[in-house]
Design a protein around this nucleic acid. Sequence first.
DNA 1: CTCCGTGCAAACGATTTGCACTATG
DNA 2: CATAGTGCAAATCGTTTGCACGGAG
Lengths: 134, 134
Amino acid sequence: MQLRMTNQREIILRELKKSRQHLSADELYDKVKKYMPRISLATVYRNLEILSEAGLIGKLEISGRQKRFDYDVTDHDHIYCVVCHRVDNLNIERQGLHTKEIKSAKGYSITGYRLEIVGICPVCQKKAKKEKKK
Amino acid sequence: MQLRMTNQREIILRELKKSRQHLSADELYDKVKKYMPRISLATVYRNLEILSEAGLIGKLEISGRQKRFDYDVTDHDHIYCVVCHRVDNLNIERQGLHTKEIKSAKGYSITGYRLEIVGICPVCQKKAKKEKKK
DNA sequence: CTCCGTGCAAACGATTTGCACTATG
DNA sequence: CATAGTGCAAATCGTTTGCACGGAG
């Protein structure tokens, strides 16, 4: 099963990298449609899955909402806004987490962990202030 | 908007607490149906939402799958099995995480964080070994 | 020329909602 | 007796899949 670099795959990858955001499949679909109006949403889903399996992009499964895809495949954590659901990258020192406790937790064999900081982004904080003034 | 303690709400709450597991809405639906055969799945969803908003139970949104609900509302983390998707509670020393870095991350105002350990549970490890022997 | 990839529509699983009815406080 | 909660069915949302066709290698 080899990977073909089709036009649609190339554009999907390019647009995600270009965006520097954590886009969902349908957001990316909208962007890609500008260059390729006949592309189908299913193709976007299929390619995002394949690209993340190939390690070319990251897949984010955050907080019960839609999946988002990450242009950055290096190791990092995420912070996300409970109001507008945007996601940003974050680098946190993790030394506090590498404890024996985790390594043998409840008999599990550990494969990794996900740390997700939750908060309100600057933009939504400003909006909230404006609302108050009303 | 006051909270009424209906029969269905009471049983849902009781069954979740009793289970000592992290049940999904439909798993809980099955349990509750034994006592209340005519209850509807929508009622279970509605009550789980209300109960978690009232702080009587916890809501877990883990890794893109269905939501699960937590009988334990005290502060703790979770470990989850990538194979069978079961979730267990976990207490991890969090001092490593309370850094300035997090508190002012990217201009966000932080409301909390979720730490999710990922691994393979003891039961699935055993199953995997058996598979190998075949 | 061989298959992997595509577009389309239909199927899907989890959750939510509109409605008329019921029952709690 | 007001109005929060219920059961039911239909709707919705994000995502996946079957199929016949198209294009990359």
